[in-house]
Design a protein around this nucleic acid. Structure first.
Lengths: 229, 229
DNA sequence: ACACTGCCTTGACGCCTGTCAAGATTCGTC
DNA sequence: GACGAATCTTGACAGGCGTCAAGGCAGTGT
């Protein structure tokens, strides 16, 4: 197999044209942005930035997946979110000039573009449409995070797991849902432990509400039962 | 005392010039926005919007305080955040055209301005600076919410309460901190119960780490002890 | 100023779920 | 395809904290 050069133009163009943040722009505007972006490959399991690092700019993922997580004082990690191709991160320090407040680590081999802080700020000034897209993204991310916080605070672990499956089912529009992460990461995302995830999934299966097809696929048999936990 | 008319111009101007979202603009730009805003008074304990309501636009608070909360299936409420003068809400539906995902209720007599959805969108298009301010606000709100979710999921109730006091102390830059809400609301914000708040505060006091001055004021005596819980 | 309503406190109890440990399974790598 | 390491599962156990209940207090409105 042939090694791709780091500054392959095709990569840049993909990066920019794939991402909702930019793909609504005119051809020549995109071309301008392409020149700002620098695509870089990362192997699996690589840390892209640490908590406390100064931000380089906006990171735009166009291949692979990245997990964003925080660490508590006693070393436990919580998954904040999983980035899929088209997602971006590093936004905090774009505005506040604050260091990153979380870790970013690749789950698979990844390719992502970086747009420098100043250049991104200029883009936002020049193209209000980009700002609006970003506001849209922020507001939906905010809504999701608030819901997650509310659930972790108010619902039992059992309910959280059940609701998570339901959410996945709605997102993927299927009754056979694909779990986007390991049980360990899932546990940390839902504010519980791998053991509890394991136990509850088994319990759901024994009740006939779900079927565990494989390690990362679950078939939902009784959606209502999950909902009224 | 005299009743203020609803469309008092002074109110509008205050609204616009007070708020970080707008107060960086030129005089005549502000004047234009003032004309869009409609100030309305609300008594204490009034619901401003319900979950599921269609958004009227952007609500900008310029007097009093408002609590934003969600309800779980079983009727428990969780405080998402408390709005202080200068804060705004209703942003979700500005972009997604989705209904509100939380409730807004006044904690005190309140005055707030509303800017209609379309007019706000136009403002954002015309004044990129407003978008940037809003992005700034969103990104810091997002960071706070993610931290809250992480804490609720990973730290014990005791630690959450301790860290909350420390946070308040930093925000207010004082060792005598003023609790911005009732114990009931505090509990729901921290993902616990009023009973636990009561018990833990008493325990902290007995350990000599804090002193409960009044129902809504606490003096921090040993910040380090609270931090290493 | 007073009464009343809602909030706060304290106690007792029980359960959910986190923790520790060991064995089974799966996944990544060679 | 096979090894090794990491992940997942299952069990036993304990304890933090939610729940229910009753009494005291504070804040609000008349």
């Amino acid at each position: 197999m042939s090694q791709q050069p780091h500054n392959n133009t095709t990569d840049h163009r993909m990066c920019v044209s794939l991402v909702p943040l930019f793909n609504h722009l005119e051809k020549d505007q995109m071309k301008h942005i392409v020149e700002l972006a620098r695509s870089t490959p990362y192997p699996r399991g690589q840390i892209i930035y640490n908590e406390g690092d100064r931000s380089e700019g906006l990171y735009i993922l166009h291949k692979g997946r990245i997990k964003i997580y925080r660490l508590s004082e006693n070393g436990k990690e919580q998954i904040v979110r999983i980035l899929e191709p088209g997602d971006f991160t590093g936004e905090l320090s774009l505005f506040d000039a604050k260091p990153h407040d979380a870790y970013a680590e690749t789950l698979e081999p990844v390719e992502l573009c970086v747009i420098q802080r100043d250049q991104m700020q200029q883009l936002l000034q020049e193209h209000p449409a980009i700002s609006l897209k970003m506001l849209e993204e922020f507001s939906s991310r905010l809504a999701r995070t608030e819901q997650r916080a509310a659930r972790i605070g108010m619902e039992s672990a059992e309910t959280r797991i059940a609701l998570y499956l339901v959410d996945l089912s709605e997102e993927q529009r299927q009754l056979i849902v694909e779990l986007p992460m390991s049980r360990k990461d899932l546990a940390s995302h839902l504010g519980t432990t791998p053991e509890t995830i394991s136990r509850k999934l088994s319990a759901f299966e024994e009740s006939g509400w779900i079927r565990q097809c494989s390690m990362k696929a679950v078939e939902i048999l009784d959606l209502d039962a999950l909902l009224l936990l």
